[in-house]
Every structure is written in C-alpha cells, then in structure tokens.
Design a protein around this nucleic acid. Structure first.
Length: 166
DNA sequence: GCCAACGTTGGC
DNA sequence: GCCAACGTTGGC
C-alpha cells in the first residue's frame, strides 16, 4: 500500500466533482515522470491526497483511493480532446491513467501554507521549491501527518468499492 | 498579472 | 550532446 498526491485545478476538476462522479479516470497527465508513476507504480488500494492547485488557497481538499491501476489514457487517442496526442497509438500508448474513487473530503481543506508550517512535512515533494510534478509519491509518515491535520484517524481504511452483503 | 522554476523542442 | 528559446505550471 502506497500513497500519492494528485494535483488538479478545481476550476477544471475539483474534489466535489469526484464526489459527484464517484470514480474518474485520471487522464490528461502529459509529463513523463508522472506518467511513469501512473503506469508502473500506482496500485489498486493506494491512497491519494487530492490537491487543488491554482486555487485560493491551494490546498489538500480530499482523500481518494485507487480502484484501477495504470491503463492507457483514452483521451490521448481522441482527436476532439484537449489532451489528444497523435503520437500515442492504442497498440503503443504513450500516456496512462489510473482510476480513483472519492473516499472523503478534507473539510476544511488544508492550505499549502499550513503544510509548510509542519516540520514533519519539510521533505514533502509538494513543498519543494519549483515542484511541478502533478502526480507524486507521499511517504507513509507524510500521509499519516496530513490525515491527522485533516482530523482523520490515520488508521482509517478507505472504504471498499464493493459493499459486503449479508 | 507577475514571474520563478521547470520541461520540451529544435538548431547546431 | 549542448543549450537557448519557448511554453507551461502554479504560488502569490
């Protein structure tokens, strides 16, 4: 079980949109380092901090869970998509996505400035000067600290996609 | 809107 | 392979 932070501009896709949709394919990532995480490293059941970039304030706004590991990003094949990449072919895809599911909002969101105040988070990729990576790893310790800041028990397991009957 | 930092492109 | 130019990201 690993942890990640995904950035999204809330004007294009906010955590509330994920709650409305339930799940979404994390498409449109067009950076090779982020692509490699999506394709090779992110597993079903991994935890995701949903971060609002270019927001006022920029903040961690929700928790999500990976429900499908890396698979080709269909938006790359779609000529009508903003993310269309004619160099990516279905039989040799360049770009990948994972599917995530909303777990719970972080309310109130944890602003970037608050994260910077926490010594235990000093090494976080998000806080590095000039960090632009939109899909980035989060350590177990960082995850625990952020969830505590959010008032969420760090031991809370994301709920399962399937309900248990009977 | 500004601008620092970064990734990509392309000439050589 | 180098690196300047350019476009993008993203905080403020």
């Amino acid at each position: 079980m690993a942890y990640w932070l995904f950035k999204s501009e809330p004007e294009s896709y906010a955590f509330a949109d994920l709650e409305r949709d339930g799940t979404t394919g994390w498409n449109g990532v067009r950076n090779f380092q982020a692509r490699n995480f999506l394709r090779d490293s992110i597993r079903v059941g991994d935890g995701v901090l949903f971060y609002h970039s270019n927001a006022d304030p920029a903040a961690v706004a929700g928790i999500a869970e990976v429900v499908e590991a890396g698979h080709p990003d269909p938006s790359a094949f779609d000529p009508d998509s903003d993310y269309h990449d004619p160099k990516s072919k279905p039989d040799a895809p360049t770009w990948f996505q994972v599917t995530i599911q909303a777990v719970r909002p972080v309310d109130p969101p944890i602003p970037l400035a608050r994260l910077r105040e926490v010594p235990a988070l000093a090494g976080m990729e998000l806080l590095r000067k000039g960090s632009r990576l939109s899909v980035q790893p989060v350590t177990d310790d960082e995850w625990k600290v952020v969830l505590e800041l959010a008032g969420i028990e760090a031991t809370t397991k994301p709920k399962k996609a399937k309900s248990m009957k009977g």
